[in-house]
Design a protein around this nucleic acid. Structure first.
Lengths: 364, 364
DNA sequence: GAACGGTGTGAGAGCGCTCTCATGCCGTGC
DNA sequence: GCACGGCATGAGAGCGCTCTCACACCGTTC
């Protein structure tokens, strides 16, 4: 395959890549057989020792362990999983629009939590990023092919094909984020982990109300994502109104520009809001920008609360009051649930909702 | 393993996980043997067809393909890699302090590029996050165990053990970011991909000089990272001075707070700077905060340039002039170099440095 | 018409491991 | 002293695949 790098040659310094073959031979991988010969026992016994199966005399066990160490034996995972039908790997499938993934370190945090938990259980993390239609097929084939023992899936959108793919693969699966497709509540094979978006929003709006604000507006995210829907529901809960004033509601799309536009809309309406709950920090940042441009001061003229507690929220001017969610923990719990059902297919596994927490700063 | 989830029971709804065993049986995986029987040919022929080996009569080839489709055959990768000594997987090892990973979407971008390129080559992406000392050993064992065909490594620090681990594994490896250990320039087995930090910094500082600024200061990142060192070097290049005024140089640590502190130091010295080049956007954001707090206006009193072009840079007030680097492309190229040497161990592979680009906004 | 080379196909070994089952050895009970 | 059960160990099959090699069959050549 040719290199498509079109850089000016000056920018490149030529160096050779270490050659695979030679080194591999020098760092030769001894087999079970070799260890057995070295220790003067049978393959079966070495296998028992390596896998910690009981029923081997302690002195023999020690002897084998020494041989393993001496030869630097590492089990061949291909051979092992060929017979055990276990791969020791878990696929993490992320189907996300670029924007979301890039705008915040959500997935880095999530992966951190997942990675910790998986490696604590000697499981490998296979990352599959889905960008286009063809990727879904690739993922489907891969999962159905039995290359992994289980799946962790992230998809924020209604009717994402991922659900079907997971079901077809027959693999234990845990979803990140409350899923959203027709009848999902009846599907008791479904396990998910989510943060408590509704309660977080409730806390945020309640804070605004308790600070004496009367005309509390909301800037919603894209309503085909459960997090946006749940946060809107929390807003309604807090106001105690089944149908809040539609003049106080504007749509953003979880982006800074969307938030800025929505804020402008709200200010042009009547009654003008004296506080705004933005569905995420990005939109809150946009709202702040619009308010600043109009010469309104925060929180005096209009108080602003965001959601997510991204790092930039703290740097904003004024620093953003927002809702924090423990994303690392969310990843950990997802992995933990999967590990549990991997170890015991009959184990009862429940969906988990992680509490959110209000972080009060200068903007409200 | 018990669930350590300490959430109030109310927050959890209990649902069962789909059982593995039953489903797996129903979605039974046919073997090569089964396909061969179905098509009325030998295992060898089916293998040839599946792997696209030439030398099979077209009509037979078609017949086998139909059988494959009909039975839903998917090759067993364990069996295959047992004999081919190829796993079809690449490890991506990331050894990073939490802060860096969380503060910016650097790795999300990088992974995106890597993932694209790998999946285009039917390679799987195995993600290994390194947090503590024990993780290095885990990674070392894993790589030496021959579970992957090659490695992509990220480590920004001098003397990171990762280099030794890569060498010991004997696996083809490409590094992300210019490495930094004694004698690395002599090591011609070393391949890395980096953005042109030095040239980017040069452009940034030159821009400042050309706008008429005379007292251009620099806020440096941690000087045990090559990116920080290279950016400082670019600053010196642009000023054309071997030894710039030490009063105009302050240390940050790539964080917002560090940048704020460094800016305060600079302002307290004499001569006071009329422009600042910050080693990254986070520090530039901190500098902006300090300037605002002191009632200085940007860019009139002090112009500010950052580095990285994070999303928040565009939202800053004023929007940050900064240096953009194509991180997705960096990931792609890393993967491409690795793939090339995977396909042909003798292929000449060169390190690549990706150009950076100045993005002029309001702050300078 | 026999010998030949080329091509397409199948038989079979073997990758490194796990796991069942047979075997040998011990201590115990009658 | 002999039969027995229990335990530690080894022999061997076989997981699903690839790949070498042998073979059969064709058309060509002298």
């Amino acid at each position: 395959m040719p290199c498509h790098c079109t850089l000016p040659p000056l920018a490149c310094t030529v160096k050779g890549l270490r050659e695979t073959r030679d080194v591999k031979v020098s760092a030769a991988h001894p087999t079970l057989e070799a260890v057995a010969a070295h220790a003067g026992v049978s393959r079966a016994t070495v296998s028992r020792v390596v896998n910690g199966t009981p029923g081997v005399r302690p002195e023999l066990r020690e002897k084998v362990k020494r041989s393993v160490a001496e030869l630097g034996y590492v089990p061949n995972s291909a051979a092992r999983s060929l017979v055990t039908r276990r791969t020791g790997a878990v696929a993490v499938v992320i189907a996300e629009p670029e924007t979301r993934v890039f705008a915040d370190p959500f997935f880095a945090r999530q992966l951190r939590g997942i990675s910790r938990e998986l490696s604590a259980n000697d499981l490998q993390l296979l990352l599959m990023l889905v960008e286009e239609e063809a990727d879904y097929q690739r993922v489907g084939r891969y999962l159905a092919g039995g290359h992994v023992d289980g799946t962790l899936m992230f998809s924020l959108h209604a009717n994402d094909p991922l659900r079907g793919i997971a079901a077809a693969s027959g693999l234990p699966t845990v979803f990140g984020g409350r899923p959203w497709w027709p009848g999902w509540e009846q599907d008791d094979s479904l396990v998910y982990v989510d943060t408590d978006n509704r309660d977080g929003a409730r806390r945020a709006v309640r804070h605004l109300a308790e600070s004496g604000h009367r005309r509390i507006a909301v800037i919603t995210g894209p309503l085909d994502q459960t997090s946006a829907v749940d946060r809107l529901a929390g807003y309604r809960d807090a106001l105690g109104l089944a149908e809040p004033d539609p003049a106080l509601q504007a749509h953003g799309d979880f982006t800074v520009d969307g938030g800025a536009r929505a804020m402008a809309e709200l200010l042009d309406r009547s009654p003008a809001p004296d506080a705004v709950f933005a569905g995420n920090d990005l939109m809150a940042t946009g709202a702040l920008r619009t308010l600043r441009a109009r010469g309104l001061s925060v929180p005096e003229d209009v108080a602003v609360v965001g959601y997510d507690d991204l790092d930039p929220a703290a740097w904003a001017d004024p620093p953003l009051t927002t809702v924090r969610q423990d994303i690392v923990r969310m990843g950990e719990i997802m992995a933990r649930l999967l590990v549990r059902s991997l170890n015991d297919a009959e184990a009862p596994v429940s969906s988990v909702v992680i509490p959110s927490q209000l972080v009060v700063r200068g903007s409200a």
